[in-house]
């Protein structure tokens, strides 16, 4: 992606209309939540240059107009597929004011992988634990306070099909945006040698790019040797392997 693409992506009506991204694994009721949030105020289209369908919708809460973007359902952001790439790029480049990760309460563990990965890119994350009714039926109880404490981001239990938790979510989104709630994601700690390398890379990236992008996340991608991702952010001439 070259500079002109980025300009295009960054061009949007900024502060007065906050953008909310909906991320999550497939089959978590993400679309149900999207519909519950936006009602009929939505339209679908293709991502620019991509062949993945996306939906965009609006809702008004306490006088503010919010734009909601339904990202493709993915299990991770490693970008093995076009869907993952689209979701990742949106969070990285469009920088939605808040990213709501929708999780399936009946298999929280698998869903948390994505939550942890997204928290590395942006701190503005809310976890919506959906399908609480189904979890209850399966006799699974979820301690949302404990979950919130361990993740460091707001957690909203939901039953989107029944509309339960939708207004709580809207309220939490509003509070995160006007900074009445400030999420402090507790990030994954990696093995010592990796952490050491991150410590070396992070300041360089911040110096090069400012704090527009999560330097920790980008450091990890560089360490993995995933230069394709890195090239989206840095011109190739910038990358020089130390001997």
């Amino acid at each position: 992606m070259d500079g002109s693409d980025l300009t295009l992506l960054n061009h949007r009506n900024s502060n007065e209309e906050p953008v909310i991204a909906l991320a999550g694994n497939p089959n978590t009721g993400k679309s149900t939540l999207f519909n519950a949030l936006t009602g009929l105020h939505q339209h679908t289209g293709n991502w620019p240059g991509k062949t993945v369908l996306h939906s965009r919708g609006h809702y008004v809460y306490q006088g503010i107009n919010y734009t909601v973007v339904d990202l493709p359902g993915t299990y991770s952001l490693i970008a093995n597929s076009i869907d993952e790439e689209v979701a990742r790029d949106f969070i990285c480049f469009q920088k939605p004011e808040v990213t709501v990760v929708v999780a399936d309460a009946t298999c929280l563990e698998r869903n948390l992988n994505l939550v942890l990965q997204i928290m590395e890119i942006t701190s503005q994350v809310i976890l919506a634990v959906n399908l609480m009714d189904e979890a209850r039926r399966k006799k699974i109880t979820i301690d949302d306070k404990e979950l919130q404490r361990r993740l460091g981001v707001p957690v909203v239990p939901m039953e989107a099909r029944q509309g339960v938790g939708v207004s709580e979510l809207k309220d939490t989104i509003a509070q995160v945006i006007d900074r009445r709630i400030v999420p402090h994601p507790r990030l994954v700690r990696y093995e010592p040698d990796i952490e050491d390398a991150i410590a070396l890379l992070e300041p360089q990236i911040i110096r090069a790019l400012g704090d527009g992008i999560s330097a920790r996340w980008l450091s990890l991608r560089i360490l993995e040797g995933n230069l394709d991702i890195v090239k989206n952010f840095l011109p190739a001439s910038l990358i020089k392997e130390a001997v």
Partner: peptide, 23 residues
């Protein structure tokens, strides 16, 4: 951010080499 990157060619990153393979 988009425009900044282009000006920054003079600031190469030095990537620390770990003991193990990237994968």
């Amino acid at each position: 951010m988009s425009h900044q990157t282009i000006k920054l060619d003079s600031l190469p990153l030095s990537i620390p080499k770990l003991e193990r393979a990237p994968h």
